[in-house]
Every structure is written in structure tokens, then in C-alpha cells.
Design a protein around this nucleic acid. Structure first.
Lengths: 166, 166
DNA sequence: AAAAATCAATTGAAAATGAAAGTAATTTTC
DNA sequence: GAAAATTACTTTCATTTTCAATTGATTTTT
């Protein structure tokens, strides 16, 4: 296996570029999930929040924002709506009343369990023909990507060469 | 390697779930790219469109929409803006005047080449510590995921069990 | 060949998003 | 221990995105 070609290199093929495939695969997956969730009154964001709460409850708003890679304002609004819909409860933390603790309602757990089955079927379809070993390897690589990128704030070494269109 | 656990199964760990990592890794990557592109007057969507045009020019609007997994209205507006900024040219196809052919301007090519270098550095950082073989394997899996999901329109087999929160 | 159907792209109204400012609570500094 | 700084979240407002309908062009049907 030789050195990775980057965009702009001669012989570079976009369809074989890992980053392009990463973004596109995720977009298609999100699209499918979104369709499937619609009839349950959910969208991908509510789904992700419920999954995160199922994983760790209660969670603070900022914790959910970080783990769902969503901006706080967006999340605040979404959580208010979800509270109105009876999916979550928001309460100020006793120790530190700046913090808002979010928990799932039993109702939300019930809905989540149903939707998880559908999510699992989409997952199975997505990985049709991919071995368990390869799924594991892919997971590791994805975890690694996130860690690598979250660790390092990107510093623009060519900051002097600021080209601009028009 | 045993059977894959799905969300809701006992012993399931969200942080090890491939779909969660897929979405999160992509979100972090997009965030980093977005930051890096800002000073060049670009965003991830313009960047992706330019990459697609660099790969195949001219392209129709619908073709770009499909390959960038973006809704047509969004793309139309973005292309209009990009034309105003001197990045692309839009012309009705002679054979079929419903179709709008989009091409990059030389100016855009110049900008793209610069930004690609930065994109490549982010890519390298993302895959720090990942072998070339593993990058290749990941690419294949991602391609497979997309193909699998694009092929099959998801049919809700539990469509009778429509639960709804609240 | 006129009418109906389909298709590619655009536009208009409504919802979602995010940067920046605002608020309230806690911690740090002097 | 009061003033300043920080933190966690919320709100405001301008922009972006999307759904649904529309336009203009081509193809299909009758």
C-alpha cells in the first residue's frame, strides 16, 4: 500500500478519497434514519440526544452539546421542545444551579426502544457484506479520527497566503 | 469477533457503536474543515461543490445535489451565490434547456488548490497513527455503506406499531 | 399535433441554525 | 468579603435550510 494521494495530486480519484466517502456515507445514513424516525415524531437530533441520555442519565446541556457535536443554542431549543413533548425533564442541579440536568421520561424510553430496533435494521443493511472484524476495525479508525481531530486545534501554517475569490 | 450488539441490547456501549462514531467523526471533521475554510471565504458546502466540479466539469445541478447529498433548493441558492462570488458559471445546456451546467472559474481552481493543501493536512492529522492499509479498508467499508443504503429504500416492517411520544 | 405527464431547476413561506449578546450562578482575585 | 472574571445556559436576531408549490422545457400519450 503506497502513500495516500491527496486532492489536487495527479491520479487522485475523488470517489476513492476516504474523507469524501466519510461525509457522503454519513449523509446517506442520516437521510435514511431521518425518514425512518419521522413517523415516530423524532428527527436525527432528538434520536441522538435520547441515545446519549440512555447511555448516561442525567446529562448536562453542555455535555450533550459536546457529545452530539451540536451548538448549545440549538440544543437548548431542542430540549425545550422535547420537554414540551414529554420526552425529557430539565431540572437545575442542586449543587450548582447554573447546570441544567436532563433526564429521559419513561415515555421516551419506550419510544426509544422501538426506534432502536429500526435503527438496528438500518445498521444491518448498511453493513451487509461487511465482516464483523471489518466493522470493528472501522469503529476503531473512526474513534481514532475523532480523537486526533479533537485533540489538536488546527493552526493554519499558510495563514499569510490568504487568497480570496472574486 | 462475535455478533454485533445493537442499541438497547444489554452490554451495549454507545462509544463503541460504529454508527455513533461515524456521525461524530464526520461532525468533528466538518467542524475542523469549516474553521479552516472560513478565511478563504468558503464553507464545507462550497468546498464540496468545488471538489465535485474539479472531479467532473461541467456538472448539472441535480448531479451535484445527488453527489453532495444536498437538497436541490439549497444547492441552487448556493450556486447563485458562488456565481456572484466568481467561483462558478451557470449556463443552460443547449440540448436540453431545463438542465443548468455548472463549471468552475479559473479563479476558483486557484483557490481550490490552496485549500486542498490545508484539507490534506487535516486529513493527515485525522489519520495519524492509522496505517495505509487501514485507511484503504475504511474507504472500502464507507463506499459499501453508501451503496447498501442507496440501493434499498427502507421499508418499515413494523409500520403497524406506530408509537408516538406525549 | 394537441393535451397530459414528466422533468430540471427555481422561488416563496416557514422552520432551523448559529454568532453574539444577555442573564444568572459560581469561583477567583485582591 | 466585595469586585472582577468565569461558567452554564438562554435569548435575540440575521442567516441558512428546507418543504411545497411554480416555472419553463421536454417527452409521452392519445
Amino acid at each position: 500500500m503506497q502513500k495516500q494521494l491527496g486532492p489536487g495530486d495527479a491520479g487522485f480519484v475523488l470517489d476513492d478519497y476516504v474523507m469524501y466517502n466519510l461525509v457522503r456515507a454519513t449523509a446517506v445514513y442520516s437521510e435514511k434514519m431521518s425518514e425512518a424516525l419521522k413517523s415516530y415524531g423524532l428527527n436525527t437530533m432528538k434520536w441522538r440526544i435520547l441515545m446519549l441520555l440512555d447511555d448516561k442519565s442525567p446529562s448536562s446541556v453542555s455535555d450533550l452539546a459536546r457529545r452530539s457535536v451540536t451548538k448549545m443554542p440549538t440544543l437548548t431549543r431542542m430540549l425545550i421542545r422535547m420537554e414540551e413533548e414529554g420526552l425529557v425533564k430539565r431540572t437545575a442541579l442542586a449543587d450548582d444551579r447554573r447546570v441544567v440536568e436532563v433526564t429521559m421520561t419513561p415515555n421516551a424510553v419506550k419510544t426509544l426502544r422501538i426506534v432502536q430496533k429500526i435503527g438496528h435494521r438500518i445498521f444491518e443493511r448498511a453493513f451487509e457484506g461487511v465482516s464483523g472484524a471489518n466493522i470493528g476495525a472501522t469503529t476503531s479508525v473512526l474513534q481514532r479520527i475523532r480523537e486526533n481531530l479533537e485533540r489538536s486545534p488546527f493552526e493554519a501554517t499558510t495563514s499569510s497566503v490568504k487568497a480570496r475569490a472574486s
